[in-house]
Design a protein around this nucleic acid. Structure first.
Lengths: 230, 230, 230, 230
DNA sequence: AATGAATGAGAATTCATTCAT
DNA sequence: TATGAATGAATTCTCATTCAT
């Protein structure tokens, strides 16, 4: 038909314009969500006409889809597989660096980050699918790491599925918290270290840890299980 | 005019009707999110007319707001402060029961649960406020518990703010996972126990734990801090 | 989704409303064609809101499609196959009646008639197809009649395809002329008779007819065929 | 300002460009009709920029109007008045040549032909007027010929208005059929001859013709006239 | 002259809400 | 109270036309 898709060669000026729209759209989508954001919201204050938007993006779905894809790609790209036989960087070091890279990404573009963590939910099956696939990929990586750790005797034998969910949830909430905070310098290194440490060592003091074993046994054997409340 | 607000006296039949709408609306909001759900979606298959909806609820916002409030209230109600001096139940036991109550709540009404965790976010400032307030309340409770634990020498000295975020995020993801899963029996007790245990003891085996101290030191002192990647 | 299709049970008042829109739409489509007619054009002067239109018709295509289908069905219904063995009505009589029925239909609703003859062309492949199919059906009927006539020795041996095109074109133009004319009484019977007579007997006087045969021969044998002009 | 109207002096290259657009536009208008054809459709595959179009044509109406005018002029030009006293060509011969010229015109540029016959109708009052005027001119010529023929005793006394409509309609449909057909050689001479012959001699065999007179009388005297059907 | 990015008026359609019965 | 037809503001998207380069 007409001038449709996004992937046209653009003049430098055109590319700048496109980016401007992309950036603003990211901010608006992050603030209001997909449905509540109108094309007018995106263009407001940009002195760009409505028609111009459609010169650069086929439609509302297309621009969101592009933002989301970029986003997930950047997140995915900042996570690197951990090489146990690495000559200089220890596995823990590599894990640390992965977390630092992700958190720096979040700090670089908070609006962008919010879109993923705040749930691209219920906007469109296709978008949901994309986010779910990403989530699953990350969870799978965590599960693999845990399994290998258990195998090597480094990690205690835990339910890897469940543990992955918990670890992933923590990370997501951390990202959300960081994205919401004011943009003053964050000590990303320390945060990453604390994150790892929490899961590595747990919260309890060594003395307490040992004292707890009996208690656990009793809980699991007396509880009614399903509905202790109502 | 017609009857506006929600808390008016209703005949028993009216109350039943109102509940019917409320339940269906919860399901629809859970599936599609607030904006994508239309009044027609809610009423479809209910043999209740459009006009009748407005006899029971002032508008679309009002019904969502009521669902959300109920929801948060039930969640809040299922979490009870931990009494350290309790005669029979240990603190850990009380914590366990709190978690079990919340998870059972989720299993009872998955649709409802999804609405909170999947983010009533970004649809309306007022809704966001409500969810944020709830989140803050839970985080505050976690922070209080951590502080007291540290004070009592049971918990290692950690950044309570950050740790609360991580613990809360885990719980949220756990709820989301549970709400999405098929409704076959879940061993809620075991999940709660694993959840507590993860944070209590950590993942690493005791042998590994001790070996790590030097490594950590080295990471924090060599790292470039902001952008170790690009 | 929502209240969609047209085939809903309607209250008498609703049906009246629907008809009102249908009638006005027919007039507007007849005047301006499909593309140039806007929903606003249709509703103008009807004191019916834009939204109401969509309560009765799924969209612009749907209302045109309904008008067109009705139209073709009524035309088709007014043409009856000619029964050569009919006890009282001669074939010519039956043909005459067919023509009269079609012309009366045109006079009843000129707007409607114009839509078909003025070419529902180029508005939508589906519409074009529908009109083309109708046209073909009528042409086919004419061809059958001609063949049978030739077989029975009543009609001279002519190219039935070509002749059908010519006969059909005459009829179409006649309809168009009638639809455009002021609605004062037309002597439909006489028009039908003249139409039949023209094709039955031709224009030339008997004396002239015989004198022409040689001329024809000469034309066909001298002509250059393709481009006698430039 | 920029150059507006059509009839400005153009460089040879410019003139070529203009023609290129004109030809493509004709094809597109023929395929989709006026409204459904966009400027982009016209320019697609022509390596001519949007702005350039407006250097050659004031607007969309202008280019259509030019195509239509050319078209009608060429049709008009191919029809020459019949000179009864012509020294070499008989009137029938002259008529035959007129028809052949028109049909050859159609075969030369089918796209163009479709625009007129398929109805430049209902898109714009001004276009309608133009087409109507042309139609009227042709009808008037037919009427004049018929009258003269009747006067000279060559043509039977018929309703010239009505007959002209029928003859014209046949020709139009013939043109449409030719324009739609595949472009393999058509025997234009034979078609023209058949066309003339149909109207000249009619369809019925001589024997049948005479037998019909009584029947006709009876139809006209018994018929109900307006609505013999419902 | 040529270009193609920018414009913005307008078109179709949706949907929360009102209102007459 | 219940109903569902009616409403119209708001939204997405198209496309003829203009304009700076």
């Amino acid at each position: 038909m007409t001038q449709r898709s996004a992937a046209k060669k653009l003049t430098p000026k055109g590319a700048g314009r496109r980016d401007e729209i992309l950036r603003k759209a990211t901010a608006e989508f992050a603030r209001r969500g997909y449905h509540a954001t109108t094309i007018t919201d995106i263009l407001d204050g940009l002195s760009i006409a409505r028609g111009t938007f459609y010169q650069y993006f086929a439609n509302k779905r297309a621009i969101f889809e592009e933002i989301l894809s970029n986003l997930l790609a950047r997140f995915a790209g900042s996570i690197r597989p951990i090489d146990i036989d690495h000559p200089t960087a220890s596995p823990r070091r590599q894990l640390h660096d992965n977390i630092v890279r992700v958190l720096n990404l979040v700090l670089e573009d908070r609006a962008m980050a919010k879109i993923v963590v705040a749930g691209a939910t219920g906007m469109d099956p296709e978008f949901d699918l994309k986010v779910d696939q990403f989530t699953e990929a990350v969870r799978a990586a965590i599960i693999r790491s845990l399994s290998k750790g258990i195998e090597m005797g480094l990690v205690q034998p835990v339910d890897t599925e469940l543990t992955a969910t918990l670890v992933f949830g923590s990370g997501k909430e951390l990202v959300r918290a960081l994205a919401d905070q004011s943009p003053d310098a964050q000590n990303v290194d320390e945060i990453a270290e604390a994150y790892i440490d929490l899961f590595a060592r747990g919260l309890f003091t060594p003395a307490l840890r040992d004292a707890l074993d009996d208690d656990v046994e009793s809980i699991l054997h007396t509880s009614s299980g399903r509905n202790p409340v109502e």
